[in-house]
């Protein structure tokens, strides 16, 4: 039987469903940015963008784009009622001072101890770019990773130990992939949810770390 996998919008929606009203949340570049599309405006979640925007709203129609209003991915955005602008040091004080309830990041690898690798693919990477990832990973109250379960070549991105340069040690609390939702616990990865039709064995075969089932 063919197994179903979650599409990227479905992954984003699955994660968004777990964000309660009132949380302050930073979304990383890439798939994590899609999470905002799946939080209804009436559930008041306050999105922070590290370039100094608190209370980020959806993308504007093209005729309403303001060249001075972008997110960290450099896309045009809007500001919601109640939103505020701050400078970079204040923005990172929010991040590094533990004021964000959640940060959602993409990743190259997540290890079973919560180590995160998401910025460089080798020690000799030509001019790797870190941006705010290390600050977000070290400073947020929770880090959830949203990523494909495997690489394009089929290699598991959930691993026993990261082989790529680390972004932060032991910071990841939960992982949402196209195949499963997993918590990082003291015992390693614990599966909370499986894509419809996927069996435990099939998931284990695609994961390069031991799995526990809740």
């Amino acid at each position: 039987m063919d197994t179903t996998t979650w599409s990227r919008p479905q992954m984003a929606a699955r994660l968004a469903a777990d964000i309660p009203e009132g949380w302050y949340v930073n979304l990383g570049i890439g798939i994590p940015t899609m999470v905002a599309d799946h939080v209804p405006l009436e559930r008041e979640v306050v999105f922070q963008s590290e370039n100094g925007v608190l209370g980020m709203g959806p993308a504007p129609p093209s005729e309403q784009i303001d060249p001075w209003l972008i997110n960290a991915g450099k896309q045009p955005i809007t500001l919601r009622q109640g939103g505020a602008f701050v400078h970079h040091a204040d923005s990172f004080a929010m991040i590094r001072g533990g004021h964000l309830d959640l940060c959602v990041l993409g990743a190259f690898e997540v290890a079973q101890n919560g180590d995160l690798a998401n910025w460089a693919t080798s020690e000799n990477d030509t001019a790797p770019a870190i941006g705010g990832a290390m600050d977000l990973a070290a400073g947020s109250r929770r880090v959830w990773v949203l990523m494909e379960h495997t690489t394009k070549e089929g290699r598991s991105k959930l691993v026993r130990r990261c082989s790529y340069p680390l972004t932060a040690l032991g910071c990841v609390r939960r992982v949402y992939t196209n195949l499963a939702v997993l918590d990082v616990t003291e015992d390693g990865f614990t599966v909370l949810d499986l894509a419809p039709g996927l069996t435990r064995d099939e998931l284990a075969a695609k994961t390069d770390a031991p799995l526990h089932f809740a």
Binding site: A89, S91, R96, G132, M134, G139
Partner: peptide, 10 residues
Amino acid sequence: EIVPQGTLAE
């Protein structure tokens, strides 16, 4: 010299 963005600002 690469510096994490928050460390750069701080």
